[in-house]
Design a protein around this nucleic acid. Structure first.
Lengths: 198, 198
DNA sequence: TGTACATCAGTGAACGCGCGTTCACTGATGTAC
DNA sequence: TGTACATCAGTGAACGCGCGTTCACTGATGTAC
């Protein structure tokens, strides 16, 4: 170990991203992030003014990744002339991200990093939403402004809500009520999404 | 103040409910709940084994209230022969609950009170979901099991997701992207729900 | 009805923990001359 | 090229806070005789 790390800022962000997924975003302490980067607990203060500054970087990277995930899903669609299929793939990619990066997803959407305090974070979040809208416009060409807004929110709410329901252990593992339903939805997400998007 | 309170258990639960809404469920400390009930910080231990036991009581009451809210909405529908209208009113009632009792809503759906550890809480949660299902069956009579499951999850996810999106300050107050859309959805929730339920 | 006593329902002090942050410091680096 | 020195990027100790929980206690209540 050199005394001067060389690229500690980057290392801390990566450490924070990893701690976030492993420990959960509400258990991310500056101490554990520093320790995980093999550095003293006060070292982060050379690179970030506050803990929140570091967390917002994690959230920002989350949006960058989600944006890429969505764009890739759209690009890789076998039948690019079929906007329905395109949106379906994007929806699946969104769900997949939300389910595999749960804690990051929460941090991105939670109140811990107020987007008004972090312009870059805000931009990334907005651009992510923009991808969704763009695809919906393709889905229903000629849609008017109000309808477009409603459709966007509707689809987004469905995806967002589904992420939340599917990861709810209490529900998913229940033998009654929501449990079986959630399991059968999970078994064929594509089929479910097709129905949800109509 | 008498030394013996008389009904401290009930008073503590009510205090917890009020602290939950005022401070947020993640800031509920046993100390603040006790203080809010004008009692020493250790008094709760005469009535609850752990903090979690007390919190689960708050969540349970949340479900009881939500259940009532949903049943009332269904019962008070002017045109009981119109299941669509009935479901619409229930949806609005659900949204209203989620938006006005945000912290309780989070506690109910969050991981703080694992439902498997609190059978009564689990029962209440399941019964709440059951009301939703029942109404959907009326909505589409003759619907088969799988479709029913999908419809339930779809509608529930939409409601759940919308609660989350609408209370997101970052989004709702944004001047770009989701902001305007969310505001226009909020302005006419009924219209939005009609579209979302199709 | 009066009293001794077990039990119940409170109390304040304290423990031990983890946290964000500050402080005075030290070792490494780079640059002016 | 060598050296003095400013600056940078780390360090460990400590502060102050809030938390859940435990402990030994005390005041109030109810009940057996």
């Amino acid at each position: 170990m050199k005394y001067h790390h060389g690229n500690l800022k980057e290392a801390l962000i990566e450490s924070a991203c990893s701690v976030c997924e492993c420990e959960g975003h509400e258990h991310m302490s500056l101490r554990s992030i520093a320790k995980n980067a093999n550095v003293s607990q006060t070292a982060p203060y050379r690179h970030f003014k506050t803990k929140q500054d570091l967390l917002s970087e994690v959230a920002k990277r989350g949006f960058v990744e989600l944006k890429n995930v969505l764009m890739n899903a759209s690009r890789d669609t076998k039948t690019p002339e079929d906007p329905q299929e395109k949106f379906l793939n994007m929806g699946l990619a969104y769900l997949n991200f939300g389910l595999s990066k749960q804690n990051t997803y929460d941090l991105m959407n939670g109140p811990e990093c107020p987007k008004d305090d972090y312009p870059e974070l805000k931009t990334e979040a907005q651009e992510t939403f923009a991808i969704l809208i763009t695809t919906i416009v393709e889905l229903k060409p000629g849609i008017n402004e109000t309808e477009l807004e409603m459709m966007s929110i509707k689809h987004w709410a469905t995806l967002h809500g589904l992420v939340s329901l599917l990861r709810n252990k209490d529900m998913a593992e229940s033998e009654w009520g929501a449990g079986p339903a959630l399991r059968s939805v999970k078994k064929d997400l594509r089929k479910f999404l097709r129905l949800a998007i109509d």
